[in-house]
Design a protein around this nucleic acid. Structure first.
Lengths: 339, 339
DNA sequence: CTGAAAGCGCTTACAG
DNA sequence: CTGAAAGCGCTTACAG
């Protein structure tokens, strides 16, 4: 319960100035040309008195909090919790700590998280942004604090971002379904204008067009984030109970695939005989499904590594002109299995 | 890219002292008896100059970082990411931010996380501890910074902790299996001395004894955290390919259930006809399984609420004698379905 | 080689 | 009603 020992305590104990102690602690004894025995004495005292630096004070002085602010839609979503974990690991290696928050696809929550993080002087942001948050991001950029978008991005306004080749890989996914002889292929996606999602629909359409298959709007099912379970259910029931003879489906995200498959299981549809499927990412749930599903595999590890690298680069060259932003695109690839 | 405006900037702009500005910003104009028009002027300047407080400076001065350090085994494990999310929500409401780290069941990593958090002056810890970290927790307690253990706990040494009734609910789970007429009941659990797990084995044994069924060590399967996938596989294969006629199984955690069920599916064992199952918690994966599983339902929301309440209480009464710790036990309950 | 001092951005007793 | 000043725990030019 006794107070932590501070730099000053050590200095007083030794009858020297805090400057000396600070230099030694930060291994700057050479630059400051501190005497060898003084160094020894100080190092010993540091150990004896169990000195632990107050990082808050250090932050205030240095202007560096060594903290990264992470904003995702929902940290309890496995996709984001995996990203969080990988960011944690990379950040830790570099001496950074991560504070996280979930925006719930809500621009106001996003803003409030960003504000809190700004006030806490984070050194950088990693954000998987929500609709209508362009201005928030721009405002952060104006402060000079680096932001890297991850997974999601805004095509129409310049930011640093790391994402996958959504359009291309989605096209490949649908190519695969067509290659299996399917031509009534549906897509289950989110009702959103966010490009990482619309790109996937775009890829879906491109594949169909390439194969001279007419795009049928009834086969494009969009579920809203808010009411996702009910929405997916209704959309899927519509799809399979209607007149269209759907024989293939592309799930634009993992969460959608999990929900969609539950309906498919409920309906007793045979996979892959009656329905070929490509999902996004894997899931424990899929291993419980009787047919091995084809899926789009994105290397989250690489995504995160690129994001952290970019962010750290920005943090380290602060003055650098902020007119050039980088978009890193990580290649996701299609893994085909029975479906 | 221009620097943030500070309290001082506002004071200078207005030609007043920083004290005034500080009082007004913190709504202490009454205590400080600041003049009404001065308050107005300051409030306006705060808006005009878009003042945002530097929370790092505030922390240094106040000694309160308004930050909670969360240590779990692995934030990408759905169990912990759900806990993280709930903690985030509760903490946010109270003006706290959460920094998180994963110990990977490794005492050294745990120690290093705790050290980092201490140096960053967190106001409190929420920890789901790993084996052999008792001394680390004790060391934190000695600093006077509150720690609340969640989910996992150490029965032999006093801490604040929030957990479920592991033993009792496990006993109920096995009672249920026995009630279904099973008497060769196995348990799949972790190889660990942590009480939250051994309690579950204890409950398993208690149920068997109560029903005069002899405990058979061969039916107690323990998988190690490190090599979990392979271990579960081997244990399960052993169990079902051996001479014992296992007709019921209790999975001591959700992760174990997911892995174990994969093996069961692979072996083509019929559930519930040939094997009755009780798992811990639910999982998307289970919805993909043909039979609805019985499971132990723990209300994580309540668990987290209790943990945060306790932690905040401790933070707010810092001087309080640290000889009395609280153990909050949240009732988990058995949900029985076909299995 | 070492110390005194200023300052990071805040808060808060203390004067007046 | 308002200002000058000390101090939270650090770092770092500047003297000497």
């Amino acid at each position: 319960m006794n107070k932590k020992t501070s730099l000053k305590d050590i200095a007083q104990h030794l009858g020297v100035s805090t400057a000396l102690v600070s230099y030694v602690i930060n291994n700057k004894e050479k630059e400051a040309r501190v005497g060898a025995d003084m160094v020894k004495k100080i190092r010993q005292a540091v150990i004896d008195m169990n000195y632990q630096p107050n990082l808050v004070a250090k932050s205030l002085k240095s202007g560096q909090s060594k903290t990264i602010g992470l904003v995702v839609a929902d940290i309890s979503n496995p996709f984001f919790s995996m990203i969080a974990r990988l960011i944690e690991d990379e950040a830790m290696k570099l001496g950074y700590v991560v504070i996280f928050g979930s925006s719930d696809e809500n621009a106001e929550k996003s803003q409030s998280l960003i504000n809190v993080y700004l006030n806490r002087q984070v050194d950088g942001f990693i954000i998987s942004p929500t609709e209508h948050t362009e201005e928030q991001i721009r405002a952060v950029q104006k402060t000079g604090i680096p932001v890297v978008l991850i997974d999601r991005y805004f095509p129409d306004f310049p930011t640093d971002s790391v994402r996958i080749n959504n359009k291309e890989v989605s096209e490949q996914a649908v190519d695969h379904l067509i290659g299996k002889g399917r031509n009534n292929i549906a897509i289950l996606t989110y009702k959103t204008k966010m490009a990482h999602i619309t790109d996937r629909t775009e890829g879906y359409k491109m594949s169909l067009k390439k194969h001279k298959i007419k795009v049928n709007k009834k086969l494009i099912c969009e579920a809203s984030y808010q009411d996702i379970e009910k929405d997916v259910r209704n959309q899927m029931l519509n799809l399979f109970n209607g007149e269209q003879q759907v024989d293939g489906i592309f799930f634009a995200t993992n969460s959608l695939a999990v929900l969609g498959l539950k309906v498919i299981i409920g309906l007793g549809i045979k996979v892959p005989e009656d329905l070929a499927i490509v999902s996004f990412d894997q899931s424990d749930a899929f291993d419980f499904f009787y047919a091995p599903l084809s899926y789009v595999s994105q290397c989250l590890q690489q995504l995160v590594k690129e994001a952290i690298n970019l962010l750290i680069k920005r943090i380290q060259q602060p003055g650098k002109s902020r007119n050039s932003y980088e978009s890193v695109i990580v290649e996701a690839k299609l893994v085909t299995r029975e479906s």
